[in-house]
Nucleic acid binder design. Structure first.
Lengths: 266, 266
DNA sequence: TCCAATTTCGTACGTCGTACGAAGATGTCA
DNA sequence: TGACATCTTCGTACGACGTACGAAATTGGA
């Protein structure tokens, strides 16, 4: 056969789907022959987002979405190559819903804004945490977001690489907080009790079971947590504390470099 | 009947299973009547860990584990209440395999050790990232781990709550790095190409599709990343950078509080 | 010896993503 | 206008999965 007549197109087919709204995507020849499509990709993606918001990502099944439009399940496959691609479309589409506010002057406020925006979004759409993606950043809305995030860390005195890594730390941290909130909510749903109710219900068992293990620090910390808020953890406070420390560290880093004479580059 | 006639035992049944090896769990009456069990809970859990390490968490099915012992799938349910409980047992068991080294004197080294241990573990057993759990910390080995982590942040001048939150930030960050490494590996497996091969294969498509979108910062940063290492991201460097900033922030916080006169408490 | 307690496990149900191919709808061209 | 190529729709089916159910087999204690 022929070695390489021309490349068999290794390119990812869902890229064009992601960018379908941006001009610059060459208009495909308008010769759609068969029946007109009854819905649009956007409607399908929005329906998926609706379901995910309301019932979680596991409820986003091809059958459930199709049913919303009175379609057969297999019909969706003429809009979207498969479920995973649909989830990526959902992630990018929901990312496009948040408007990206003007960035404040104060560096600390800029970084806080980046983290808080991500956190609020993940609180509103926790299923985003479960959409693990091959190349997550490559949709149009995610690209816009990333550019905006870079703007927030631009001009602080970070190197290009450090800018990216700083954004990653902030977003990752916001995601972790959102994840712990999600798990807490899910635990209450599954067990049918609040966190403190669960501790009460399992108090005796825990004591018995841990009888000859000793956790002095964990006990002290757990007691302090239980007294301060009514639960083992309080994600809202974790957000404030951790975010403050991370930003402290970043700002100290750039300041040290600017004042200090000849520091090594990382 | 039961000693306490009232309460229908709200306590979590898998707690006893988790702590089955610690004495203090009252030995159940040794009157096992039926046929002797052919394997042990530990063997089952270890088999699950083996499979998860080798083929990922999705490959840990009841049928697959049972097959390893020549058992029927349903047999496992006399050892373990359900799959989710098994995953928690796996997580705790694998956590017990790592020995917890002596903590160094230097505060920075202590915090680095905590994060690096978590990171190494998650690299070795990436499926731990997917075991999302109701009450994750309550197994014996996870409790030991948590106590050890608290020791690492004890005596730095943090409040009890801050100790817990600091550990959470460190562990969460290590998890995020491990997650990005995992996604990178998976992407290469799924697409069958390395990251740079993927960029090359999609270069034209990306250019076309992004034709009228402008990402000056993302382009600059992406170029810098591509030149420095051969990929869009380098998790190992992210670990060093982010960890340094977080620790900077934490140490600055305690130092500021000790030197500064009357600061407010968070 | 016989019964109660346990383990084993075959079968089956309802779920999922999706492969396959038929049937129908539509546009293009002779 | 008729014929055909192309596209959408979707019913059916396959092979996974977790696990409910209940029968069969095995053991120890009375």
């Amino acid at each position: 056969m022929s070695d390489v007549p021309d490349q068999p197109d290794q390119s990812d087919p869902s890229l064009r789907l992601l960018w379908r709204h941006r001009t610059g995507v060459r208009d495909e020849p308008r010769t759609r022959r068969g029946p007109k499509q009854k819905v649009s990709v956007d409607e399908i993606v929005d329906a998926g987002i609706d379901i995910a918001d309301a019932e979680g990502l596991a409820a986003v099944t091809m059958r459930a979405i199709a049913q919303r439009f009175g379609l057969g399940a297999m019909t969706l496959y003429s809009y979207v190559p498969n479920r995973d691609a649909l989830l990526v479309l959902m992630a990018d589409q929901v990312t496009g819903r948040a408007e990206l506010p003007e960035l404040p002057e104060d560096p600390r406020k800029r970084l806080e804004l980046v983290a808080n925006l991500a956190h609020d979004e993940l609180r509103a759409h926790p299923w985003l945490l479960e959409v693990q993606d091959v190349r997550p950043w490559l949709g149009p809305n995610m690209s816009d977001r990333y550019e905006w995030q870079l703007q927030a860390v631009d001009g602080l005195g970070l190197s290009d690489l450090e800018m990216d890594q700083t954004v990653a730390v902030l977003i990752g941290f916001a995601g972790n907080i959102a994840r712990s909130e999600l798990m807490k909510r899910r635990a209450e749903q599954v067990t049918g009790m609040t966190e403190s109710e669960w501790w009460e219900a399992n108090y005796d068992t825990l004591n018995e079971v841990m009888a000859d293990s000793h956790y002095p620090l964990a006990n002290r910390v757990g007691t302090a947590a239980g007294e301060t808020y009514q639960a083992a953890t309080d994600p809202a406070r974790e957000l404030d504390y951790g975010l403050a420390r991370i930003i402290d560290g970043v700002l100290a880093h750039v300041e040290r470099r600017s004042t200090g004479a000849a520091d090594e580059l990382s």
